[in-house]
């Protein structure tokens, strides 16, 4: 049985969400835990281009928003833009090597957290400033970079249609 693309992407997002909530959340450094889930829109943007990056960012962010007390859609907004931006920037890559994925993930993590805080504060979530933003950025960068080599092949698998002789067309 071959799963359709949307189901494979959904499965990868679901597994990523569970790993974030059950594992990454409980691995604390400097009393904070990181957000590794941002690696999924990054990997989707690199593997599938800006459109797929944005879509995966939106769904992943919305899934994460379910568990947060910040406005529903805030993470989705930030990660949609992140996935799109990585997809656009990734077009210039001749070939997506592991290191380039790690580099993109390590760059996207702190930027997306910064955007999350800024947009959140604009929306009246001043409490985000009370959190240890810099340590969260640092830890998130580390865990996202570590997760990138796992997320990239998972997302490539999700986007590859076994019936398609030319996989991963952007």
């Amino acid at each position: 049985m071959t799963l359709p693309t949307w189901a494979r992407v959904g499965l990868v997002i679901f597994v990523g969400l569970m790993v974030q909530l059950a594992v990454v959340n409980r691995v604390s450094v400097w009393s904070v835990s990181g957000q590794a889930l941002i690696v999924l829109p990054v990997a989707a943007g690199l593997a599938g281009g800006p459109e797929r990056g944005a879509l995966v960012g939106f769904v992943t962010g919305l899934g994460f928003d379910v568990f947060l007390t910040t406005p529903f859609g805030l993470t989705a907004l930030v990660w949609t833009i992140t996935g799109f931006a990585v997809g656009v920037a990734g077009r210039n890559l001749m070939r997506s090597s592991t290191w380039s994925i790690v580099a993109f993930a390590a760059l996207a993590a702190p930027l997306s957290i910064g955007a999350f805080v800024v947009i959140g504060v604009i929306l009246g979530q001043e409490r985000l400033l009370a959190a240890p933003v810099v340590p969260i950025m640092v830890v998130s960068t580390l865990v996202t970079a570590l997760a990138a080599p796992l997320a990239a092949p998972a997302m490539r698998w999700a986007f590859t249609d076994p019936r398609d002789p030319v996989p991963l067309r952007r």
Partner: peptide, 12 residues
């Protein structure tokens, strides 16, 4: 992208 951003903003 525009549609997704608009949806997210509407949800928020």
């Amino acid at each position: 992208l525009a549609l997704l951003v608009l949806t997210a903003v509407t949800l928020m």
